[in-house]
Design a protein around this nucleic acid. Sequence first.
DNA 1: ACTAGGAGTTGACGTTGCGGCAACCGCAAG
DNA 2: CTTGCGGTTGCCGCAACGTCAACTCCTAGT
Lengths: 259, 259
Amino acid sequence: MAWSIADVCRMSGVSSRTLRHYDAIGLLPPAWIAGNGHRHYEEADLLRLQQILLMRELGLGLREIQAVLDSRADPVAVLREHQRRLLGERDRLETLVRTVGRTIAELEEGGKMNKTVKINRPENLFEGFEDESAAAGAETEAEVRERWPEAWEQAREAKQAMTADDQDWWQREVTAQMIRLAEFMAAGVPVDAPKVQAELDIHYAGIRRFWTPNAEAYKGLGQTYVDDPRFRRNYDRIAEGLAVYQRDAMAVYADTLLS
Amino acid sequence: MAWSIADVCRMSGVSSRTLRHYDAIGLLPPAWIAGNGHRHYEEADLLRLQQILLMRELGLGLREIQAVLDSRADPVAVLREHQRRLLGERDRLETLVRTVGRTIAELEEGGKMNKTVKINRPENLFEGFEDESAAAGAETEAEVRERWPEAWEQAREAKQAMTADDQDWWQREVTAQMIRLAEFMAAGVPVDAPKVQAELDIHYAGIRRFWTPNAEAYKGLGQTYVDDPRFRRNYDRIAEGLAVYQRDAMAVYADTLLS
DNA sequence: ACTAGGAGTTGACGTTGCGGCAACCGCAAG
DNA sequence: CTTGCGGTTGCCGCAACGTCAACTCCTAGT
């Protein structure tokens, strides 16, 4: 009762290349190999192949299949883990589908991003703005330290804990959010709109990485964005009036959520 | 206003390896290359990179991104096509998740397929049974030709239209269905259960590839499975009494859906 | 006896989007 | 003079095979 590779192909529907591959990686070695090198399979091999195909249809990788078949892994545990990955992938695709859908809609209606207010993504589209910590370093920082001494201390510690990569990432995040806010402003969205306040949620969460301000302090920070020329220039370099828009949004956020 | 590769990395968050890759495939060549081979990027390149990253986050392939950016493709059309693929993938994962879930449940409850009735997946797990058309060729076929001459003619034509690969596939399908039915029988599921009748739906659809029997003819075919020793042996080789089970299920199917 | 054909073999490349490593080069500071 | 940084090219690896290419064996037909 032995079958040639072609027999197995016909019976199982897999290609001979696949069977050779499975042999090469040790997943399904043939029962014996003839003098001329031809592979020959027996019943037990077919049984094993059936298991392989079953698990393959479930989307398992060959390595995992091998582990299970050589009883080096618990089938149920492997399947559960696999299902978790599948769910994750499905969710990822789900949100991707929606994002793509939104992008299509934007492209179709907006023609190509023609806003009334100019949004500058200036020389440095990613760079954000000239090192905020350094720029604000000299005078503003002294002011902050004076007004909220313990906040200043916390912020210093948190910043110390960031690696250079973290700081780059943080920089990009801040810039990206500024641009998103600028788009809302350009679209005429009022600062108390849920979309805007959702952005402020992110902003507040970001600030909390360094320091957890109360309502008053958060509003004060917003005012600083407008008053301090270094901050203000960074905001207005993205779009005219963005600093004011941000301050107003922060005030609303403070009043509604931080009171 | 030119930036080195490391500058662009810091600003954009992509690795230098990635930028070199994008250069290598022509997706984002640097503005100019210095005498020492160092790449230098300018504002336009950053703009392009931004677009690239945007589309990359949408899950587009680099080739498609390139086509879009070189305006060799319509962005909306590409995105729509992409979304279709995403939806397909999502659905595939969705059904996979369910299938895996069912498999887990089966493994957990069934311990490991301990049925009361033995199901043989004999020497040839895939082969199905000895060439049905050849086995039934001699006498049964003559009988069929006599009783339903035009059916015989249609069947002959349909079978001629199948390639060798098709026939292999068909063989495997038939065997797989027999095994599924045998499992129902082993589990004591009555022939009029919806699950069983759903299988019969598939069986009837399969038969219709060759021939569209009415209720009487379909019941007659079921009886042939029991009476003809060649058919019967094939069925009972899978599990004792399967031929009778199949006949009864076919009779119910004929009475309820083909009358 | 010669030869065509079919079934089988090994080996290597291509697919996607890079990560990681090795080896090398140019330039500035200690 | 050496060290180190920042840059380069080039190649392997990944997952699971598809797709040649080149070659060997065995059988059947002429």
